[in-house]
Amino acid sequence: MSKHSPHYWGIRMALLEVRQLNYVYAAGTPFEKHALNNVSLSVEKGELIGVIGHTGSGKSTLVQHLNGLLRPTSGTVVLDGKDIWENPKAIRSVRFRVGMVFQYPEHQLFEETVRRDIAFGPRNRGLSEEEIEAAVKKAASFAGLREELLDSSPFDLSGGQKRRAAIAGVMAMEPEILVLDEPTAGLDPRSRERMLSRIERYRRENGTTVMLVSHSMEDVAAIADRVLVMNRGEVAMFDTTEAVFSRAEELEAMGLSVPSVTRIFFELRRRGYDVGGNVYTVEQAVARLLPLLKRGCSS
């Protein structure tokens, strides 16, 4: 690590910072709605943040501020030490640095071939043809699209393939931060798991910061470093996965729930079984329960 790296000195510089963000929909009309209320948070490079919250909690509104699709009513979004709205004309350049995958992204496909659709972002960015080709191939492999699919029409793909093609389209812009809004919505459990491991692998190999918006506690618990909990337009919690899920009662009060395995472990502990600390994934649970079961059998 070089001496110039902030990490060397033990200072972690935030890649993305949101300061005192407020957003009001339809201001001045009877439909006025305060969607975000004094939201502040900071995200470091390479982190994987899970964003959870009830419908209407403001999580989608928040992430749309990160790449300048929405302009804050007040407050700032700071990317790499610079306010993204410093120069409103240059807001497009922010969109390449903060890639955003919307909910049901498969509905945005439009090109004649998958290859050209994935290339839409990089081409808008102004990359050369060779760079575009390389970015498309790389993104397709991260998203789990076989190369022979690249020359077919996106409308001939299966639902899951379409979703992956659309995600590849954002990955191909090689953003520093990748925001995914419900990338596993409507997928079967197996595709879900695969999708999450692809995202995880993408982050690991590129060092990209990832923000994963999700309803599913299971998804978030499995791969996130930290979890941001939104409630009624405010940050309710922003802490490590462990710390957040240990506050199960507060989460339930917000209409959220901890992963089912975690709940089972709570209940086991309540009934007096010594099952140790919190558990968020099935794998963890298996590792914790197997020795207990073996001990139980031998006694």
Binding site: Q64, N67, L69, R92, R95, F96, G99, M100, F102, P105, H107, Q108, F120, G121, N124, R125, G169, V170, M173
Partner: peptide, 16 residues
């Protein structure tokens, strides 16, 4: 609503 959503999605991909 749909138009709004698609516009946002394409803008996010740098559509000008």
């Amino acid at each position: 609503e749909e138009t709004d959503k698609i516009m946002s999605a394409q803008k996010a991909r740098g559509a000008d």
